[in-house]
């Protein structure tokens, strides 16, 4: 990881829905080769920031730069650097995984031969090769998640953005996915992920940001967060609860 070279830069990013500020001005830099975890309680703004990063929704203010390309001014070049796996993998149900790969690969202008070879490798990795010609409509949530994850990597993106990667996956697949992310960072790729499974973040992430009510409440490595929270021997769960103030909830509610 090269900490001098931010590959993603959020500058004063904010998002408002009427009077409600889903994201207050956020400034954040993610570095090349980094596995960055973005944590926060429900409704804190994690998915909103991810959707701004992937160009699905537009920020009310601020700028996003991806690999030096401005998402607002050069959206095509910026988006080409990203692969995105959403939290709810809605796919084209009437296509098979291979047809879906052809479609997604075509949108990113990936060569047909590469789509075929990368698609085969990933489907085999995720135990879906024997389902390659079945319609996606018959797949479970976890299987769709694996298809979405494979499709996001067809164009060999420099940055993989993953929203809740472990939801719906069985333990074997979770292990596979974690190893897959680690291997990607070893190849110099950057991963931006959100998760509620704090053990996953603790295992994988080089740095972690905790968002609370649309603002970044803390950011750093696990050790840095422990220091900031004055909890040197505690795990990420304790730190997370302290920072997001959930530990102060009445015991009866918890």
């Amino acid at each position: 990881m090269n900490r001098t070279e931010p590959i993603i830069r959020f500058t004063n990013i904010q998002k408002k829905y009427g009077d409600f500020a889903a994201l207050k001005p956020i400034n954040l830099e993610i570095f090349k080769g980094e596995l960055f975890g973005f944590l926060g309680p429900n409704g804190a703004g994690k998915t909103t920031l991810i959707r701004i990063l992937t160009g699905i929704i537009k920020a009310t203010g601020g700028t996003v730069s991806i690999g030096g390309f401005s998402l607002e001014k050069e959206p095509e070049s910026a988006k080409r650097m990203l692969g995105y796996v959403p939290d709810r993998p809605y796919l084209y149900e009437k296509l098979s995984p291979l047809e879906y790969f052809d479609f997604m690969g075509g949108l990113y202008n990936v060569k047909q031969s590469e789509i075929t070879s990368i698609g085969e490798k990933l489907l085999k990795l995720f135990d879906l090769w024997n389902k390659r010609n079945d319609l996606i409509e018959s797949f479970s949530h976890g299987m769709k998640q694996k298809v979405a994850m494979s499709a996001a990597n067809l164009h060999k993106p420099d940055i993989l953005v993953v929203d809740e990667p472990t939801v719906g996956l069985d333990p074997k697949s979770v292990k596979l996915a974690k190893q897959f992310f680690k291997d990607m960072t070893l190849e110099g790729k950057t991963i931006f992920l959100t998760t509620h499974t704090l053990s996953v973040a603790e295992d994988l992430c080089d740095r972690i940001a905790i968002i609370r009510s649309g603002e970044i409440a803390a950011i750093g490595t696990l050790e840095e967060l422990q220091t900031k929270a004055s909890m040197p021997n505690n795990n990420l769960e304790d730190i997370f609860l302290k920072i997001t103030e959930e530990e102060n909830l009445p015991k009866a509610i918890i």
């Binding site: 699905i56 809605y90 796919l91 990113y108």
Partner: peptide, 14 residues
């Protein structure tokens, strides 16, 4: 395009 429209919107196609 349905709920799968995210895959087009997040792609480099304008």
């Amino acid at each position: 395009e349905g709920r799968a429209f995210w895959s087009v919107k997040s792609s480099p196609i304008s």
